[in-house]
Design a protein around this nucleic acid. Structure first.
Length: 334
DNA sequence: AAAATCAGCAACCGCAGTGAA
DNA sequence: TTTCACTGCGGTTGCTGATTT
């Protein structure tokens, strides 16, 4: 037996709202407020509409200061930055864009911004081997190494490691505010970091990913063991709240977006740094949702610019990981 | 000029979280 | 502690106008 319907479907009007309905609803709410009860609101207003429909109409269209029309480049950047970090949590993204609704942003992403990114990504791939103009020689070599490496490591049971490079391990991966702590086992670290941790690993030290079917664990190469075991491709999470899936993603995000922790911890920030700060705050304060694991767009397509999920991790070159933030941001302006 | 296809967007659906009873 | 009504959210649908064939 399914859930009881929120209203009598047979007796409510559906479809587009008429100007009369709009004005009725608007006038009522402006005068009386919603009363905290959307279900009974239509009766009070005198509308034959479902309460949910009224709520949606108000939030997405009628309420004051709603901004319609073209998105600015700044807004594009913010949406992309946030999407990279938190996925399709449109309400959180919308909260950073005054006047924009989650529905608006979702539609904009699905119909335009996503395509824009895919197109840019394709153009980059097309140009990459010939020009190499935007990356230095070392990076080209690194890319080649990575591609060779991944070309010869296609099975899921292989262990992987990144080439040696000092990186700060982004605290974005740690939604919970725990200190990096020694666990009861003398040799192991809990995979927990506080929002202020400046934890550095070399990439060699960082981790190897070993997978057995879907069960995976992250092991620090220096002998320490990450205590967290997760069902990677199904989006299960370790008990301490750290999403290993996101660890990988944020590891890559960090490198591709270039989050600057010194800047984040300083009092003066640029606009984009402020956005990053906001992302940190949001991620730190929000609960982990499984929905962010379940993107409608394949990660393979967007991964070079966004994240890649562990389920495809072994098949995706980390090539883009080492590109500059400015390149990514610049794409949006093309 | 008509039909087919595409793109954008408003609205709906159903699930999950929350809080009151 | 359990149940249930309500809200909020993300995914999906379907309508409409624009563009292409």
């Amino acid at each position: 037996m399914g859930r009881a319907p929120c209203c009598d479907k047979a007796n409510v009007k559906r479809g587009p709202w008429s100007p009369e309905e709009d004005s009725k609803l608007k006038a009522y709410i402006e005068q009386h407020g919603t009363g905290g009860n959307w279900i009974t609101l239509p009766q009070k207003v005198g509308l034959k509409r479902c309460g949910k429909s009224c709520r949606l109409r108000w939030l997405n269209y009628l309420r004051p200061n709603i901004k319609h029309g073209e998105f600015t480049d700044d807004e594009d950047n913010i949406i992309c930055t946030l999407y990279m970090s938190i996925g399709s949590r449109w309400s959180i993204i919308a909260a950073q864009l005054p006047g924009r609704t989650d529905n608006d942003i979702k539609n904009y992403w699905n119909t335009r911004l996503k395509k824009k990114l895919l197109l840019c990504n394709k153009q980059r791939k097309d140009h990459r081997p010939r020009t190499g103009s935007y990356i230095n020689h070392n990076k080209l070599e690194m890319m080649k190494e990575h591609e060779n490496f991944f070309a010869t490591h296609q099975t899921i049971n292989n262990a992987y490691s990144w080439p040696s490079q000092q990186i700060p391990f982004s605290t974005l991966i740690a939604p919970q505010n725990h200190d990096l702590a020694e666990s009861s086992s003398a040799n192991s670290h809990n995979f927990q970091y506080s929002s202020t941790d400046q934890v550095y690993f070399s990439q060699d030290q960082l981790c190897q990913i070993s997978s057995t079917n879907q069960l995976a664990s992250m092991n620090l190469v220096n002998g320490n063991t990450c205590n967290s075991s997760v069902m990677i491709s199904n989006g299960y999470y370790p008990s301490n709240g750290v999403v290993i899936n996101n660890c990988l993603q944020e590891y890559n995000n960090y490198n591709s977006v270039g989050l600057d922790h010194d800047a984040l911890n300083s009092t003066s920030t640029t606009h984009s740094q402020q956005v990053d700060k906001n992302v940190l705050e949001m991620v730190n304060s929000s609960t982990i949702s499984t929905t962010s694991q379940d993107q409608s767009t394949s990660w393979e397509e967007l991964s070079p610019l966004v994240n890649y999920p562990p389920s495809v991790f072994e098949t995706v070159s980390p090539y883009y990981v080492f590109e500059e933030q400015s390149l990514y941001m610049g794409l949006l302006k093309q």
